[in-house]
Simulated assay, not measured.
Amino acid sequence: MRRLWITAAITFVLDQVVKLIVVQGLDLARVGAIDVIPPFLNLRMAWNRGINFGLFAGDSDAARWVLIALALVISGWVLLWMRRERPGPFAMVSAGLLVGGAMGNVVDRLIYGAVADFLNMSCCGIENPYAFNVADIAIFAGAVGLVLFTGGKKTP
């Protein structure tokens, strides 16, 4: 479990520090867009009130609190699962990525009322309209890792 907690803490801090630098330090909240390495990497401010890609977005406080509760319940379930199963180190790191990323987005919803998304990547003539953040990357990587690194038969 130690590996999970360390990974979750590093992920959470990295997510929040990057958001602080980009949203506040670079003033992306006001500027709206900064081209870094166009079209491959751009900063585009997006306040996500829903889940990934703005799905189930609602401007109501109720929707915000439901999404906060959902993130907390899923994180709690993952922690309980990892504690019971005691999978290998890759699964623990994956769980830490998921939990740390989820907590980063929960803090955004508490502070800003929405998740601060700002990374935008396009390539090869395909314009990506969506933005994401470090927490989203961690959640995705953690979920994929949990699929890949759990569920196998344990050896005695």
Rank of each mutant, 00 (worst) to 15 (best):
Arg3Met: 12
Arg3Pro: 03
Leu4Met: 14
Trp5Val: 12
Ile10His: 06
Val13Arg: 04
Gln16His: 04
Val17Glu: 01
Lys19Pro: 09
Leu20Ser: 15
Leu20Lys: 11
Leu20Ala: 14
Ile21Gln: 01
Val22Tyr: 00
Val22Pro: 06
Val22Ala: 10
Gly25Gln: 13
Asp27Ile: 09
Ala29Gly: 11
Ala29Thr: 13
Arg30Gly: 07
Val31Lys: 15
Val31Cys: 08
Val31Ile: 15
Gly32Thr: 10
Ala33Ser: 10
Ile34His: 15
Val36Cys: 01
Ile37Asn: 08
Pro39Thr: 14
Phe40Glu: 13
Phe40Val: 14
Asn42His: 12
Asn42Ile: 10
Leu43Lys: 09
Leu43Arg: 09
Met45Ile: 06
Ala46Tyr: 07
Ala46Leu: 07
Trp47Asp: 02
Trp47Glu: 12
Asn48Tyr: 02
Asn48Met: 02
Arg49Ile: 01
Arg49Tyr: 02
Arg49Glu: 00
Gly50Glu: 03
Gly50Phe: 02
Phe53His: 02
Gly54Arg: 02
Gly54Lys: 13
Gly54Asp: 14
Leu55Glu: 06
Phe56Leu: 15
Phe56Asp: 14
Phe56Glu: 11
Gly58Leu: 11
Gly58Ile: 03
Gly58Cys: 09
Gly58Gln: 02
Gly58Tyr: 03
Asp59Ser: 13
Asp59Tyr: 08
Ser60Gln: 15
Trp65Leu: 01
Trp65Gln: 00
Trp65Met: 03
Leu67Lys: 00
Leu67Val: 03
Ile68Val: 15
Ala69Lys: 03
Ile74Lys: 05
Ile74Asn: 04
Ile74Met: 06
Ser75Pro: 10
Ser75Val: 08
Trp77Ala: 15
Leu80Gly: 07
Trp81Val: 03
Met82Gln: 04
Met82Pro: 06
Arg83Met: 11
Arg84Trp: 10
Arg84Ala: 14
Gly88Thr: 11
Phe90Val: 08
Met92Tyr: 09
Val93Ile: 15
Ser94Cys: 08
Ala95Tyr: 05
Gly96Lys: 15
Leu98Phe: 14
Gly101Lys: 00
Ala102Tyr: 04
Ala102Ile: 11
Met103Trp: 04
Asn105Cys: 07
Val106Cys: 00
Val106Lys: 00
Val107His: 10
Val107Lys: 08
Asp108Gln: 02
Asp108Arg: 00
Ile111Asn: 07
Ile111Met: 05
Tyr112Pro: 06
Ala114Phe: 06
Ala114Leu: 06
Ala114Thr: 07
Val115Gly: 01
Val115Arg: 01
Val115His: 00
Asp117Arg: 03
Phe118Tyr: 15
Phe118Ile: 09
Phe118Met: 12
Leu119Gln: 10
Leu119Gly: 10
Met121Asp: 04
Ser122Val: 08
Cys123Ser: 12
Pro129Tyr: 07
Ala131Lys: 03
Phe132Met: 08
Val134Glu: 03
Asp136Arg: 04
Asp136Ser: 06
Ile137Ala: 10
Ile137Phe: 12
Ala138His: 01
Ile139Glu: 02
Phe140Ser: 15
Phe140Arg: 05
Ala141Met: 12
Gly142Lys: 09
Ala143Thr: 14
Gly145His: 08
Leu146Phe: 01
Phe149Gly: 05
Thr150Lys: 06
Thr150Ala: 12
Gly151Phe: 04
Gly152Thr: 11
Lys153Trp: 07
Lys154Trp: 08
Thr155His: 15
